[in-house]
Amino acid sequence: MTQNILLVEDDIEIARIIKDTLTKEGYFVTWSTTGLEGWEDFKSRHYDLALIDLMLPEMDGFTLCKNIRFKSDMPIIIISARKEDVDKVEGFTQGADDYLAKPFSLVELKARVASQLRRWQRYKGEALAQNEVSYEYGLTINYDNQRATLNGSALALTRTEWDLLTLLSGHAERAFSKEELYEHVWQQAATQNDLHTVTVHIKGLREKLADPVKTPRFIQTVWGKGYRFIGEAL
Rank of each mutant, 00 (worst) to 15 (best):
M1K: 14
T2Q: 14
T2E: 08
T2R: 14
T2N: 12
E9R: 13
D10F: 00
D11A: 12
D11N: 15
K19A: 11
D20F: 11
W31P: 03
W31C: 12
T33E: 10
L36Y: 13
L36H: 09
E37N: 07
E37S: 11
E37P: 03
F42S: 10
R45T: 08
R45K: 09
I52R: 06
L56V: 08
E58A: 15
M59N: 07
D60N: 15
D60C: 11
T63R: 11
K66Y: 12
K66G: 07
F70Q: 09
F70A: 02
S72C: 05
D73Q: 01
M74S: 05
M74N: 10
P75L: 09
I76T: 13
K83L: 07
E84C: 09
V86C: 09
V86G: 03
K88R: 15
G91A: 12
F92V: 08
T93S: 10
Y99F: 15
L100P: 10
A101T: 15
A101H: 08
P103A: 12
S105T: 15
E108Q: 14
K110I: 00
W120T: 04
W120H: 15
A127Y: 07
A127W: 00
Q130R: 13
N131A: 10
E136W: 02
E136K: 06
L139N: 11
T140W: 05
I141V: 15
L150Q: 10
N151E: 13
N151V: 03
G152S: 10
S153E: 14
T158W: 03
G170R: 08
E173Y: 14
F176Q: 12
K178T: 09
E179I: 04
E180Q: 01
L181A: 06
E183F: 09
Q187D: 13
D194W: 01
L195A: 06
T197P: 04
T197R: 08
T199H: 03
V200W: 00
V200E: 05
H201V: 05
I202K: 02
K203Y: 06
E207C: 00
E207K: 04
L209D: 04
D211W: 00
V213F: 06
V213Y: 06
P216R: 03
I219Y: 09
Q220F: 04
G224Y: 01
K225M: 08
G226Y: 05
F229Q: 10
G231W: 01
A233H: 08
